[in-house]
């Protein structure tokens, strides 16, 4: 008779002397299910109940398509703007020392901390035709408030910290020796930045872009004040959801929400893929 060797087969959890696994995991799962999973599956269930024809009709409605285009278009432009300026801001914060650097660094998080409604009315006041910035732009024929350009401005504000905070830690990790060795090999400063530093930062920049973009697509509070909300011109998708809800058109609200949700999951997937890929390759 032999005693069975410890089974190396499937095991839900590695043994541990630490107590509390059942309690904490149980509570966490229950809470997660109640707060997040059930409500979200409710949304999916409702949109599935719509049936393909209805769903398609709502999604291909001119106004819906326009709203989605505006949301995704402005979010894309704003994220692109943030990639350029956010990378510069991060570089200056990491590499240069100047009085007030600490304060500038802390300021970058303002969009995380400032309620979006407050940002919305502040930006609107600034960019309105009689506002501080608006009054400078109006003579040049540039209208910002109540146009898609205003949406871009709000989304640049919202998205900035995503890019800076994703790129910054990677920049801090850059080994100065890598730059030095590139210089000994004959590369000038421009070549060092474009061929050595930026490619190394690329995964972080892409991630920052995706985060800013995803946030921009869903943003509501800071945008609705400055956008003017003209259907077909400056109406964003989240606002259209709210409008449909107020019309008790649950079906339309649900369908638009489902599309947006699906697209943001795709973004999430992209972010994860980029990170896994770069971790695998560059260690």
């Amino acid at each position: 008779m032999t005693t069975a060797p410890a089974k190396a087969g499937w095991r839900f959890r590695q043994p541990s002397v630490i107590p509390g696994f059942g309690l904490t995991l149980g509570f966490s799962l229950a809470y997660l299910t109640l707060i997040i999973l059930i409500p979200l599956s409710g949304l999916i269930w409702r949109s599935a109940a719509l049936g393909w024809t209805d769903f398609w009709a709502i999604v291909t409605d001119r106004r819906t398509i326009n709203a989605l285009e505006i949301s995704f278009g402005t979010a894309f432009i704003a994220a692109a703007v943030n990639v350029v300026f956010g990378t510069i801001v991060a570089w200056v914060l990491v590499r240069y020392s100047f009085p007030g650097r600490r304060i500038a660094d802390a300021m970058v998080d303002l969009p995380f901390a400032l309620p979006t409604a407050v940002a919305g009315i502040a930006l609107t006041t600034l960019y309105a035709p009689n506002g501080w910035i608006g009054s400078l732009l109006t003579p040049l024929g540039i209208k910002v408030a109540y146009t898609p350009l205003g949406i871009v401005i709000a989304l640049v504000f919202i998205g900035l910290p995503f890019v800076v905070r994703t790129v910054q830690p990677i920049m801090e990790e850059i080994d100065k020796e890598v730059e030095e060795v590139a210089a000994t090999l004959g590369a000038n400063r421009f070549q060092i930045i474009s061929r050595v530093l930026l490619p190394g930062l690329a995964p972080a920049i892409v991630t920052g872009f995706a985060l800013a973009f995803a946030r921009g697509v869903g943003e509501y509070g800071s945008v609705i004040f400055i956008a003017g909300n003209l259907p077909f011109k400056s109406e964003i998708a989240p606002l259209l959801i709210v409008i449909r809800l107020e019309e008790y058109n649950y079906a339309a609200a649900t369908a638009i929400a489902a599309i947006m949700l699906a697209l943001s999951f795709v973004m999430l997937l992209v972010i994860n893929l980029v990170q896994t890929w770069s971790r695998k390759r560059y260690g």
Partner: peptide, 17 residues
């Protein structure tokens, strides 16, 4: 997950429920 969901949708799911 909630970070990648639009705030409007976060509210909407409770309205639907």
């Amino acid at each position: 997950l909630p970070f990648s969901v639009s705030p409007v949708i976060s509210g909407l799911v409770y309205v639907l429920l």
